[in-house]
């Protein structure tokens, strides 16, 4: 499988002497859905900005789709990787839904006919075709995030970072965006997602979890393996998913649950047998 992102010995600090990121190295394969978790201040958001070259790294290298992340390659990188930020309002640039989806296309100097086609195609893909001429103050937070996603997809980007993209949404909006991500993944297995999140349950259903703590990679692996390390996670104050909690608590009571049971449906089936 090919690599989407390769990070090698990455260092970054905002202030001298305070290292925000220390010696970060990891690879992300194409088509992988990676959840990046950790406390506020663990360096997650900084890492995401370094990946998109919104901040330059101090030391170390990043490759996005084999292109090195550095100033000369900035415009090339913009054709590879996109990011959805936390605040839906502050990334809505156009005056209407269609203008906003078109913004990135305009920046790429794409001819108008092509733009109109792409805007319509991707607006309908994210379910916003009915709202093309609505202004942002007529939309919900979840709808604005959908528009942001359409803007990225329209550019043909295959690597998408979600920087706490659902944390300011109401539960309906959160479900909405989660569903959309799952649909997108199914439709195009080449899409690579890096989701920065506090939602442990979301991390649990990803392909891989990377946990950052104080600027370093604390754990990296399959959700099942990572969340098994309950004591280790507790030591840095992170919670574990509900299903893992139930399993480990039952283990303490001498009720063994087989390892292959990974969600509440399976567990309820097992218990009712």
């Amino acid at each position: 499988m090919k690599e989407a992102i390769r990070v090698e010995h990455l260092y970054f600090s905002y202030e001298k002497g305070v290292e925000t990121l220390k010696d970060i190295s990891f690879n992300v394969n194409k088509g992988e859905y990676v959840a990046l978790i950790g406390h506020n201040g663990s360096g997650k958001s900084t890492l995401s900005k370094l990946l998109c070259y919104l901040l330059p790294a101090d030391k170390g290298q990043i490759f996005v789709d084999d292109i090195e992340v550095k100033e000369e390659n900035e415009s090339l990188l913009r054709k590879k990787i996109g990011i959805v930020f936390q605040n839906p309002d502050n990334q809505f640039i156009g005056s209407t839904v269609e203008d906003d989806i078109a913004f990135g296309l305009e920046n790429r100097n794409i001819p108008r006919e092509e733009m109109v086609r792409l805007v319509h195609e991707f607006a309908s893909k994210v379910g916003m075709i009915k709202y093309l001429n609505k202004s942002p103050d007529e939309l919900s937070g979840g709808q604005k995030q959908r528009v942001a996603i359409a803007g990225i997809l329209a550019l043909g980007l295959k690597i998408i970072i979600f920087d706490e993209a659902t944390s300011m949404l109401d539960p309906e909006g959160v479900e909405d965006i989660k569903k959309l991500i799952m649909e997108m993944k199914k439709e195009d297995p080449e899409l690579t997602f890096i989701s920065i999140t506090h939602d442990i349950e979301e991390a649990y259903i990803s392909d891989r979890v990377i946990i950052l703590n104080k600027g370093e990679i604390f754990l990296d692996g399959k959700p099942n393996e990572v969340f098994q390390k309950e004591d280790l996670l507790k030591s840095i104050g992170l919670d574990i998913p509900f299903i893992m909690k139930v399993k480990s608590s039952l283990k303490d009571k001498n009720v063994q649950i087989p390892n292959e049971i990974n969600n509440i449906e399976e567990l309820s089936d097992y218990l009712c047998k």
Binding site: H39, N40, Q86, S167, M168, H198, I200, G237, L238, D239
Partner: peptide, 8 residues
């Protein structure tokens, strides 16, 4: 609690 991490 909107927009805070679990600790917050």
């Amino acid at each position: 609690t909107a927009g805070l991490d679990p600790d917050g």
